[in-house]
Amino acid sequence: MVEYMIELISRMIVASTPLFLATLGELYTERSGVINLGVEGLFVLGASVAFTLTILTESLMIALATTLVVGAVIGSIHGLVTTYLKGREILSGLAVTLFSYGLASVIGRPFVGLSLPVRLNLSGNYVTLLALIIASAIASWIILFKLKIGVVIRACGEDPSSAYVMGVNIDRVRLITTMMGSSLASLAGGIYTLGYIQVWTEGAGMGWGWIAIANVIVSLWNPLLTPIFSLLYGGINSMIWMMQLPPYNVSPYLLGATPYLVTLLTLFVIVATPIKKYVKPPAALGIKFEREERTI
């Protein structure tokens, strides 16, 4: 029984890691005033790229490092369109997601069903993993709320006009945070395939990015709170794995819908109970920073 509980807990922590990373990335992006719906696609793309490269190079480091680069490159499309080109964020983000879905499917197609030559052993180190999650949450809080760079990022999300007067290049800061968030989402996808599911089929990782975006709201845009829902979600995921097996035998399709139902209900609880006092999105979230006539 004790071993069983330990396995459940270790699975919970491993499953929560990708969600936590993607959430943290999106949190930085949203704090600077950009919504990046591309996180969903980049997670799926990262999963595909990491799996493919691990098979080709047999090196986890190369695979995961590449996911970071791929995420930054594809994320920069969203960054450029929404900052310098004043494009609609929701459309651009969805487009990046669809494009990345397509790319993931084309890249991973020859590798479907193959098994990984090397394993990323996360479940053996779940205590370290949990410590790392909490440490990065605290570090991010310090970066965002105690350091000057955090003030700059938050100023872009709260009051870009004032920040501009103080000499901040709004579009550049937003581009960088978008690329960073995209990188983390893509890395999260890589960790998801290599460390958690350890196989790749078309569509692996779909839906996790949406949950990450919801998690930013659930965490009230505060990095310190991001591990909570990540762990809860990781827990649900490992429960699902257990409930499909005897003696429970619950329909895997109904179980597959539960994480989304739980997320929707959590969002509902956040906005419909007194917690809603604390829901304070960055004031300029999704609002373009514009000057009338510009010379580049």
Binding site: K86, G102, V106
Partner: peptide, 27 residues
């Protein structure tokens, strides 16, 4: 021999470029 997921490449690409080119409507 592609999977149908590849259609997302066209659809997503077209949507990104349309969104980006909207810039030229305003500026």
């Amino acid at each position: 021999g592609l999977t149908i997921g590849a259609v997302n490449l066209f659809v997503g690409g077209l949507l990104i470029i349309t969104t980006a080119l909207d810039y030229l409507l305003e500026y």
